[in-house]
């Protein structure tokens, strides 16, 4: 058809660095890619790798906004690249790896290591010493609304966007971040986890935990799963203050 608009020529500027190459220094490199219908940054980056520079490093797994692998700074804002449509952005797009995580190269970061440490440190699993595994018996009941509420917080994909968007963690790298606080809120809500308020206090009742948060709430702004981080952080803070007063 005649009236079809000429596709845009996108300029993709990428912060590049290969830490394994002693000669390399961090630098910006710009690629030109013709925009196509429904194009996402997943498509853009693969096109660059396949046709412009096959050494470009980035992480995609599900490419459907489900797994949380492809978080990066898109025009300075942490988000999931796979589900970012170029049509929603200007012609010039800058991409950089999420800060704070160990860099593997270019846009590829080692979130796995960071999240593993977090999960081990906060013991993000059901604690129930009394419980004997009984898989033949009818499962324990749970109120349907409570199950839904737990699932709501369980939706975190550990993408690290909240960490990259956190003001506190810039100054205090040992800060747990919204991802960790949300997990505590999730397990606290879960009646199957028998940890006491005091035990939770041990985990996050300090400046690396709930009392370190400066309530800038960049986390809530950038969370791709729209988790209720603001209200959960506020809730945990009230609960932790109550616990500390009790003791």
């Amino acid at each position: 058809m005649r009236d079809e608009k000429k596709p845009r020529l996108l300029k993709i500027s990428i912060l590049r660095f290969d830490p394994h190459d002693p000669e390399d220094v961090p630098h910006m490199e710009t690629f030109e890619v013709e925009e196509s219908d429904g194009m996402t940054l997943y498509i853009v980056l693969n096109e660059i790798r396949e046709h412009h520079d096959n050494s470009l490093k980035f992480d995609f797994v599900c490419r459907a906004g489900i797994c949380g692998s492809c978080s990066m700074l898109v025009n300075g804002r942490p988000t999931l690249a796979c589900r970012t449509l170029t049509s929603k952005l200007g012609e010039h797009i800058t991409l950089a790896p999420l800060p704070l995580f160990e860099l593997i190269g270019d846009l590829s970061i080692y979130t796995g290591k960071w999240m593993r440490y977090l999960n081990e440190h906060l013991e993000t699993w059901i604690h129930d010493k009394e419980k004997e595994v009984a898989f033949d018996k009818l499962e324990e009941r749970m109120e349907p609304a409570l199950a839904d509420e737990i699932y709501e917080l369980d939706r975190c994909v550990e993408c690290g966007c909240c960490v990259a968007g956190c003001g506190t963690i810039q100054m205090r790298p040992s800060f747990t971040g919204a991802v960790g606080l949300n997990k505590i809120a999730r397990y606290h809500l879960d009646p199957r986890d028998k940890r006491s308020d005091e035990e939770y206090y041990e985990l996050i009742g300090d400046e690396d935990g709930i009392f370190g948060c400066m309530t800038l709430l960049g986390c809530e702004d950038v969370c791709p799963k729209d988790l209720p981080l603001q209200s959960k952080i506020a809730y945990l803070r009230r609960m932790m203050i109550k616990t500390s007063m009790k003791n």
Partner: peptide, 19 residues
């Protein structure tokens, strides 16, 4: 299969429940 799902329920999966 029923054993596996019940085990996972104990491990924390918030299975949707009957109302």
């Amino acid at each position: 299969a029923p054993k596996a799902i019940r085990e996972l329920a104990q491990w924390g999966v918030p299975w949707s429940r009957v109302q």
